[in-house]
């Protein structure tokens, strides 16, 4: 009788533990891309008003599926992807700043942060564009950290 009781208790404890881990995993995935098998954790900061965090996640998943080598570079060299304009304006807004503002993204030198232009639309072409942007700046980050 005791053995059955012990098995029952152990079963409930294991189930509770799995549910607890699943809850933590779910909470992490609201704000971040997390792939524990590949030790990949990237914080994704969406722009609530004019951005779409989901297409950033989709882009990362597509990189993982299509380009394992760059996915590894991304996981090792990027800690944060932020939907934000790449602004070089400080004070007045010049023609150069307008060009910068229109870019799809940029890499912040000296960090492991990529800025990506906010985009509300959820479509195949936007995800594809984000794939290319994220890949490009992940390679920039890799280059920076190799050289410094």
């Amino acid at each position: 009788m005791n053995i059955f009781q012990n098995i029952k208790d152990a079963f409930f404890q294991v189930t509770f533990f799995i549910m607890f881990i699943f809850c933590i995993y779910s909470v992490i995935n609201i704000f971040s891309y997390y792939d524990p098998i590949n030790s990949c954790y990237i914080r994704v900061e969406g722009d609530v008003v004019s951005g779409n965090r989901k297409t950033v996640y989709d882009a990362i998943k597509l990189i993982k599926k299509e380009d394992k080598k760059t996915y590894k570079v991304l996981c090792q060299n990027v800690e944060r992807i932020s939907e934000n304009e790449c602004s070089t304006a400080h004070g007045e807004f010049t023609e150069d700043d307008k060009i910068a503002w229109e870019q799809d993204g940029c890499y912040v030198r000296g960090s492991k942060v990529i800025l990506i232009k906010p985009e509300k639309i959820d479509s195949e072409s936007i995800i594809r564009k984000r794939v290319e942007t994220i890949k490009k700046y992940a390679l920039y980050s890799e280059k920076f950290w190799k050289e410094n």
Binding site: C86, S87, A89, A100, Q103, C106
Partner: peptide, 15 residues
């Protein structure tokens, strides 16, 4: 100081 702010942005943002 505005010039310093602009300079650092151009240094750290890479397209």
């Amino acid at each position: 100081c505005y010039a310093a702010g602009r300079r650092i942005l151009k240094e750290i943002i890479q397209f």
